[in-house]
Write a protein that binds this DNA or RNA. Structure first.
Length: 502
RNA sequence: CGGGGCGUAGCGCAGCCCGGUAGCGCACCUGCUUUGGGAGCAGGGGGUCGCCGGUUCGAAUCCGGCCGCCCCGACCA
């Protein structure tokens, strides 16, 4: 390096000034959370920018996380009696116009295809922003009798919404998701279904993604266009902001009336079906990044990690190399046989230290190091990603019980990530009864706020305008006490969660 | 679309004010030595300086226009 003359600063000095860890190329989340998020996505090779505005390329490692999310959800959908199907990407434009709230909600963000095969189309096609309309058009054909109900369909698909502002995974022009669509004979059944799927999302978030969530009902202002009631699970991210990680809607008979989905009941009377829809998207990948990530990068819960255990061999010269590698391969095979997702990093082009950091950035929950010292003592060194540095390192006997032992550690890591996320949320949730105090604390402290809420749409708009925070949901679990609404001052027994949100 | 910032090698940036053969760190390639927390030394490859136009003998640098990206709002899973 050239001598430091005048005001010229070295990259290391600049890195320090920027709060950037030069070694990892990741900005500290405390310095600039938005930048940290983008750095993690780049360094962990989750996604890359696409040449199309607002779109991203999901790279293999990021896609593997999505596949794990998909597997966890799909299993639960099947267990609750749903079947997968596929509906077209293109929807006749007139379909969208059939449900008034739905049109109003989606019209501004539609991508419209006007030409095909070199000619202008007679009727423009929209690229689906969601599939209620085309699915319900088909439901009208399939439903005749109460015997055809309930109809429980799920679709895995891509959708397009022309958003003004995008962020990788959290909001992209095109995104991947699942959308469940069901039709039922009664309101009660449909409401139960909407709540059942909300609980399915909650169970997935808690058990697989290790993210504590608040299931609740959306306010009038925040609900899905065309729904009677919308429910959501709300999670807290590393900067104290809320993220809606899944939604479920009771649609009433709104779409049934628009698409004429009627059935004959047992009394031979014609009735409209009651419906639901519910979805989780690639946004969930963003939730995992922001709920668990730290200054070293990603931290993945074992339940979703594409690689749960990485084995790093350490050798000194060729004499120890063969013995170390052999032991590593044996362990890899044993863990794989036990059903664990394990990777042996036997690259001889990188040093062990490099590999430690490489897999830490990628959030692998557990690293096993095997070197000459371990061979001598008949053990391995285990380093868990859920605890920082050497605190997460300890020795494990390399014996018959190793697979079971590692499985136990993975369970502990899963629990630790959940506990850490829960602890942060609880420590960053404030109960407030006074509007002025709420405004002040949103700015100064951030996080979640629990307040009595009986506000109107206008009250909610005022809240957002003045504080940039919104009512995330009215939690389903309520304490049953009462007090005065933080904005309107009206007496109410409902408590809302208020926060700034993505 | 409004306000702010930025486009120079794969990534992060300097150079621009004051025009004169395009640089630094990391990454990459080759060789030797290395390998328990991002290895060392030596050598090497890579950029029509976002695009278009103007001024000039000469433009990364000055002027005009356009495009794109990021942050903060409005819209939203």
């Amino acid at each position: 390096m050239k001598p430091n003359t005048g005001t010229r600063q070295t990259p290391a000095m600049l890195a320090c000034l920027e709060g950037r860890n030069m070694a990892e190329n990741i900005t500290s989340p405390r310095t600039d959370y938005a930048r940290w998020y983008q750095d993690v996505i780049r360094e962990a090779e989750l996604a890359d920018k696409a040449p199309v505005r607002g779109c991203m390329v999901i790279r293999p490692y990021g896609y593997a996380i999505w596949e794990a999310i998909r597997a966890g959800l799909d299993r639960r959908f099947r267990e609750t009696g749903h079947e997968n199907a596929y509906f077209p990407l293109f929807i006749p434009k007139s379909f969208i116009d059939k449900e008034s709230e739905h049109v109003e909600g989606f019209a501004p963000e539609l991508a419209v295809v006007t030409h095909g095969g070199g000619r202008e189309l007679e009727e423009p096609l929209i690229v689906r922003p969601t599939s209620e309309t085309i699915i319900n058009y088909m439901f009208a054909k399939w439903v005749q009798s109460y015997r055809d109900l309930p109809l429980l369909i799920n679709q895995w698909a891509n959708v397009v919404r022309w958003e003004l502002r995008t962020r990788p995974f959290l909001r992209t022009t095109e995104f991947l998701w699942q959308e469940g669509h069901t039709a039922h004979a009664s309101k009660q059944e449909a409401v139960e279904e909407a709540l059942r799927m909300l609980r399915v999302y909650e169970s997935f978030a808690v058990e697989d993604a290790a993210i504590p969530v608040i299931p609740g009902i959306k306010t009038e202002r925040e609900k899905f266009p065309g729904a009677v009631d919308s429910y959501s699970i709300e999670a807290m991210m590393g900067n104290g902001w809320a993220l809606q990680a899944g939604t479920s809607h009771y649609l009433g008979t709104n779409f049934a009336r628009a698409f004429n989905i009627q059935f004959l009941n047992e009394a031979n009377e014609l009735e409209y079906v009651h419906q639901t829809s519910w979805g989780v998207s690639t946004r969930m990948v963003g939730a995992v990044i922001m709920a668990h990530g730290d200054e070293h990068g990603l931290r993945l819960p074992p339940g979703l990690a594409p690689i749960q255990v990485v084995v790093v061999p350490i050798w000194r010269g060729d004499d120890t190399r063969a013995a170390v590698l052999e032991e590593c391969q044996r362990l890899r095979a044993r863990l794989a046989e036990d059903g664990l997702r394990v990777r042996l990093d036997d690259r001889d082009t990188q040093s062990p230290g490099f590999k430690f950091n490489y897999w830490e950035v990628r959030g692998v929950p557990l690293r096993i190091e095997i070197g000459p010292r371990d061979l001598e003592s008949g053990s391995v060194t285990a380093a868990r990603r859920s605890r920082p540095g050497s605190e997460g390192k300890h020795s494990l006997p390399l014996d018959e019980g190793i697979a079971a032992g590692i499985r136990r550690i993975l369970d502990e890591i899963q629990a630790e990530l959940y506990d850490q996320a829960l602890e942060r949320r609880e420590g960053w949730t404030t109960e407030v009864s006074d509007y002025a105090e709420l405004s002040r604390l949103i700015e100064e402290k951030g996080g979640f706020f629990r307040c009595y809420w009986d506000g109107s749409r206008e009250d909610e708009e005022r809240l957002q305008e003045e504080t940039k925070a919104t009512v995330r949901c009215i939690p389903i679990d309520q304490p049953g006490t009462s007090g005065r609404c933080v904005v309107s001052g009206r007496e109410t027994d409902r408590i809302a969660v208020i926060a700034r949100a993505y």
